[in-house]
Amino acid sequence: MLETYIPIGIMIFFGVTFGVVMSKASEWFGPKNPTETKLSTYESGMEPVRSAHERVSVKYYMVAMLFIIFDIEVVFLYPWAVNFRQLGTFGLVEMVIFIAILMLGYLYLWKKGALRWD
């Protein structure tokens, strides 16, 4: 069973090795004459002001939380979808109830403005 994953392991190994070799290549072959200006962060030709690691809009965190909530439902739907033909009408009714509850939450989020981006 597990031996079907060996080729995947080799593939990932090849992919990562390719990445490492290529990203080292320009360190090996490229010229090296760093200057103070060259090493500063790009900011449209201005002197960089402060660091970029400051607070970012809360909207991004909101999207991340919503993603986690909905993605768990999606993962839950996969085993159901595989066995759908065996579950028959009972399976569909169950899933309609489940999705109806989910959609109630979704409508609440929509009305609350959690999906609005401005």
Partner: peptide, 13 residues
Amino acid sequence: KLVMKEDIVPRQA
């Protein structure tokens, strides 16, 4: 061309 370019890592990175 890309291989012959300098690999720049910003100081603050």
